[in-house]
Design a protein around this nucleic acid. Sequence first.
DNA 1: GATGAATGAGTGTTCATTCAT
DNA 2: CATGAATGAACACTCATTCAT
Lengths: 191, 191, 191, 191
Amino acid sequence: MSPRTEQQYEDIRESRRSAIMQAGLEMFAKHSIETASIALIAQHAGISKGLIYNYFENKESLILAIVMDGLRKFTTLAPELNGKTMTKPEIIQYIERTFSLLENHVSYWKLYFSIVLHPAVMKMAEPHLQEAILPVVDMLTGYYTDQGVADPAAQALFLGSVLDGISLNYLVNPDLYPLQTIKEIIIQKLV
Amino acid sequence: MSPRTEQQYEDIRESRRSAIMQAGLEMFAKHSIETASIALIAQHAGISKGLIYNYFENKESLILAIVMDGLRKFTTLAPELNGKTMTKPEIIQYIERTFSLLENHVSYWKLYFSIVLHPAVMKMAEPHLQEAILPVVDMLTGYYTDQGVADPAAQALFLGSVLDGISLNYLVNPDLYPLQTIKEIIIQKLV
Amino acid sequence: MSPRTEQQYEDIRESRRSAIMQAGLEMFAKHSIETASIALIAQHAGISKGLIYNYFENKESLILAIVMDGLRKFTTLAPELNGKTMTKPEIIQYIERTFSLLENHVSYWKLYFSIVLHPAVMKMAEPHLQEAILPVVDMLTGYYTDQGVADPAAQALFLGSVLDGISLNYLVNPDLYPLQTIKEIIIQKLV
Amino acid sequence: MSPRTEQQYEDIRESRRSAIMQAGLEMFAKHSIETASIALIAQHAGISKGLIYNYFENKESLILAIVMDGLRKFTTLAPELNGKTMTKPEIIQYIERTFSLLENHVSYWKLYFSIVLHPAVMKMAEPHLQEAILPVVDMLTGYYTDQGVADPAAQALFLGSVLDGISLNYLVNPDLYPLQTIKEIIIQKLV
DNA sequence: GATGAATGAGTGTTCATTCAT
DNA sequence: CATGAATGAACACTCATTCAT
């Protein structure tokens, strides 16, 4: 008789929103950002097309929300430094966590790369990507500065690029890429 | 006013085909594979839409042709080995050539990555990509075997991944990425 | 905390219904019949979408109710004649009342005209419009018959058309249209 | 074998464009601007939806083109004055021409009114409407100035409003409205 | 070889309406 | 009485592809 309570509505919205983002992530990763239609995502989520627009203003907003959500997972990997710089065990742990994240969220990382390379979408996501990546780069730069290497910023950028390249190759064929062996090579050569 | 010779027709066809591929490459890189329409490519090439179908069966074929063409440029970078393995100067030269190619064909490499990440197109291009990359991986594996490292195949794969990662980061922002400094780091650490 | 009486329920219903119609009128006039959505009207009235359907069967019924309500305001302008015909002061007063109504209900009259011109809605509203306008036309015809003009019915129709035309032009730009001057011209020329 | 000549393409385009505008006019007048869909217009014109977009950028452009076309017919009604003012026979002839135009283009004038009253569309068409109407108002003002009436501008505006009102009432029910009789009343009372 | 008019399936998005609560 | 999540049909618009010339 009475309408649902505020809390009930909130719960419904939260779980639906999550489900749509999950379905979106899977379809975007499987098909590509343009090829995965809203209709397909809706079907995959088991809801009507129209409902997606009850939760996201448009396709772009949905993509951005997915990216931001994934980015949050990424940024929480870094240890709390509180002004100190990283120790060697910490950076090793950070690399290992990055690889775990990669293995546990293959779909998200596929999406991440397709966005980084997609001219239109990148324009929209880049500010947020930069914001998320900057503290990581700073952290790595601080580490290499402590190590006394010649050009710490370039060294940090290099490590970042290496992690990207490995991620990319791993994602193209997760089953065949020897991620563990590669991880050991990184730690041995670059840390 | 005599009719054109067979050879002349052949030349016209070849140069038209080339122009279409060039226009396609530029538009695919600037917009994205889905966003760049056949109409746009035709306009960019200064010809009619219909004519493109006189040279390529469909959009997919055009993309594949562009990729194969770029891949050919990539595979000819490797030195002629004739059964021998690479020397250190040769591998350094190979890395330098790779970077030159990158700097001279930014558009192509953007396209290359967007294809590698694009699920639908990749299915079509992957066999050819593998075929092109295999001899390079073999070559690098041979080099690391000579060096006596523990796992030469993994080491070769690692170097390939690193080159990919650097290419990717360079392409996202070619003006800001310190490609020369990074190159020196690679040679120092990985060769 | 006793339950509401029948009368209280009735009052709530009546005031809600009124508020919805007011919000509808404003939104239909501001946007247009098709562009003003039920969601917008609900928002403007400060209620939920669903509640509108508790008071009106559908969008069309809401429009019709608004039109009928406005029409009632219009028909009550005419003086009580009780079988007599209008005098000159009465017709002048009638014209002045019409213009006052126009100035006081700009939004309604915009809606009125958009409905008159709207093929689909008109089919639905026309019988009611005719029914409301007929006595006015009869009244004017009676007046012109008394004046002994050649074709009193045409004269009455003419005055009606003139009032429509002035209303239309006034509504398109209420601030710039010299309604008072125009009123004087009507009285001078047509009464 | 060879493609069509420029002239042939031009002819095709011209006749198709006309046909689309004609179909658009009819459907917009019959259903209303929002209710008449592009699909309906295409069907009425016997072509595909997509083709309309080969000739008009979007629905708005099609509407605007139809309005401008109709407006041109309207503005060519006025006599060539070359700085002189209108004589009484000329203004009578102008009014008669206006009514003929009305009778011959009922659909167009329905559309005209629906546009004038449509908030969104009006914003787009208003500058053009004003531009077209201004010289007519000036012409009428000149005439009344010659006649020595008290407020010639208001008088001209009044005549314009009257013509609008008559048009409106005529269009609502062309078969029953006594246009000829009304015309005589106008000439007798307002000229 | 070359053109561009034409098609039609597909896209993102909107919105009146329903209904469980 | 009142809510807003949910639906689905409809819409404007795009684009790879075909084909008469």
